[in-house]
Nucleic acid binder design. Structure first.
Lengths: 196, 196
DNA sequence: TTAATGTTTGACAATTTTGTTAAGCAAATG
DNA sequence: CATTTGCTTAACAAAATTGTCAAACATTAA
């Protein structure tokens, strides 16, 4: 099923996500989005009422996507090591496709001072933190505040893709080389986080 | 010398940096900046001609600040270990004060497709990468592409501060606790990067 | 076919943001 | 004291962006 076949509403939303999350153009106007989607700008208002509501919907769905990564990876009876690999694999794939998704969320939450869902913690994050703690007690990974562990993990996965333009400039890395480096990171991050 | 005493031009620039880099309000208008600085908006145009020129100046100075961190830390005859500590200390302090500085640079470079300074590499980054490589050859740190090492380092330093709102939400961390965690990271990052 | 329903469009209005101008003001220089 | 100079302001103009509306169009059901 192509992007076009999903109907105009979905097309507009997907195009907005592409512009925000993949291209990192956070200042895109409704006109920019309509143009990229190849539709009349009025349709943005027809389907979403206002620019703000489109943004809110996109933001909410992006938050959901983030939430689900952890619940997807950390359910089931696999070992911690296997779950961790699954998490790294899924998150990296998504972040390669949409490097600026979190950047969008951060700037949007800074824009208006919206507090975001609290129940997330209990359902998704808390079990994850508990498993980390258990793994530390076993001595499998270095003891530290599990929240530091989690921050380290997500930092190593997200930041290099978020800052690719800066990194390319500072380290003189070509686009081609950068892709190669990013592909190596799944394994590399696992080894840093979970030393053999 | 207080912020006010530096003259209006500097005051406007400093206020803009505070809004962009400290508060992460990337969509701030010239009116927002003028209000925060307590001056008439016309002064923004008087001193900087246009919004775009103010942004370019702020961007350029932020790039310079980033460049200097590495040259500052990596000149002199200290050991690699000492230089690394110096770098972590300086970068973390700056990032705690201005967590969104890089976020601003990333979105601005995404906005217009500006290529950024190449000579940076030779003067600052290349010697740093060479020292990393030497340290790996000595066996002091785990062997990998030195560029990965550098990415890891900056990821661990920058990302948790950049994403503090998301992290606080997902892990239910209070503002107070977050500050405490961030203060611990200087040491923690050094230990992750440079295992004893 | 006709009516009903949902979709798309262009023209227009409103709002927000940026940029310009001329005049006022204050310090300091002759 | 008069003048120059740089700084500041309010009022206005221009541009960019968002939002509205009625009419045209297409699709489906009666």
């Amino acid at each position: 099923m192509s992007v076009k076949d999903k109907g105009t509403e979905q097309l507009i939303k997907d195009t907005a996500k592409k512009i925000f999350f993949a291209e990192g153009k956070l200042h895109a106007t409704t006109q920019d989005i309509a143009d990229a989607a190849g539709v009349n700008r009025t349709l943005v208002h027809y389907y979403f009422r206002s620019r703000k509501l489109l943004f809110e919907q996109v933001t909410e769905e992006a938050m959901d996507e983030l939430r689900h990564i952890m619940s997807d990876a950390f359910t089931g009876k696999q070992t911690f090591q296997e779950k961790l690999k699954k998490l790294i694999n899924a998150f990296m794939d998504q972040t390669i496709a949409f490097p600026y998704r979190e950047l969008f969320l951060i700037t949007e939450t800074n824009r208006y001072d919206t507090e975001h869902a609290d129940e997330v913690h209990d359902t998704h994050t808390k079990p994850f933190l508990a498993e980390i703690k258990a793994e530390m007690d076993k001595g499998a990974i270095k003891a530290m505040d599990p929240r530091h562990f989690m921050m380290n993990l997500f930092s190593l996965m997200a930041y290099p893709l978020l800052s690719s333009k800066l990194s390319k400039g500072f380290m003189k890395i070509t686009d081609h080389e950068y892709v190669k480096l990013m592909k190596q990171r799944k394994q590399l991050i696992f080894e840093m986080i979970y030393p053999q």
